[in-house]
Amino acid sequence: MGRNLLIRIGSTMVTLFGVAFIVFILVRVVPGNPIAMMLPPGASDADIALLTAHYGLDKPILTQFWIWLGRALQGDFGTSISLRQDVMGLIFGRLPATLELATLALLIAVALGGALAITAARFRGTAAETGIDLANGASLAMPDFLWGLTLILLFGVAFPVFAISGRVSPTLDLPFVSGFYLIESLLRLRLDILLDLLRHMLMPALALALPLAAVIAQLLKTSLKEAMQQDYVMLARTKGFSETRVLLSEALRNAVIPTLTLAGVQFTFLIGGTVIVERLFSYEGLGNMAIDAVINRDLPLIQGIVLVFALLFVAINLLVDLSYALLNPRLRHG
């Protein structure tokens, strides 16, 4: 276990270094000059050269990278060019909003996908299964941002039950000490704030969740149907248990294992999807900030955000591997 952990940490470091390096080079090679965008039109060449030197952008790219890496290893990710604030501070200010949105979306996807899969497997071979298959197909065929637009039209415009932009109503007085509004409002039992948060978050979360829910539903249904053919399921039937009970207590446990691996990978896609969906709903999260950073060619900020996303991907994969061992007793030894 200790050896595995070391290998894991080592490969994580290599991944993060690779991501940092590639992004660093890419954002400097593509056209667009952050300094020119900061200064008013007609600024003198001398001013531009001065500011460029100030941010160290006059040096060769590789030299810049080593300087950045040296500082990053000490926890200093630089200052945002467009916002003039510490990059890490900016990221940690926005990260909780994105984490809460992604987690809410994941919960919705698992609940919805799981319920659909169980229903379809329980009533396999009937019209219910066909209907669920069709809904899954439709849900998969549409990308998250299209779902976002559809939801805005439906529940923001036609039947305005949800808020179409932002994370929370600006008029509300927030007593929070952290950025985790959803969790804090739950802990402090502030139901008024919780409802307002959900009124803002449910639509973007649903837009992110629907494609993932379809993947989970389809995959889990297939595994469940296969598990229902197994001998131990037949034995449970002879013991007197109903089909529903057999499905839930015998088949589900074994069917979840293959679903989990793919759902983990799909969840990382969902995190990537927050970038555009947050933009669509003007949700003040990390993804929304990433788009601003790209538009402004804010090199240090882009660099920091991409690293955080990369770290999230690695963490999710680690969690999937750990839960895999937890669910499958045959992998628990050693």
Partner: peptide, 26 residues
């Protein structure tokens, strides 16, 4: 189906052919 299952489950039991697949692995 439901009542039949539990009626049988109270009165009869099954010993399957292959013990390697008849127990739930998890």
């Amino acid at each position: 189906q439901g009542p039949r299952r539990s009626f049988i489950g109270k009165r009869a039991a099954f010993i399957p052919q292959d013990p390697l697949t008849a127990l739930n692995p998890s």
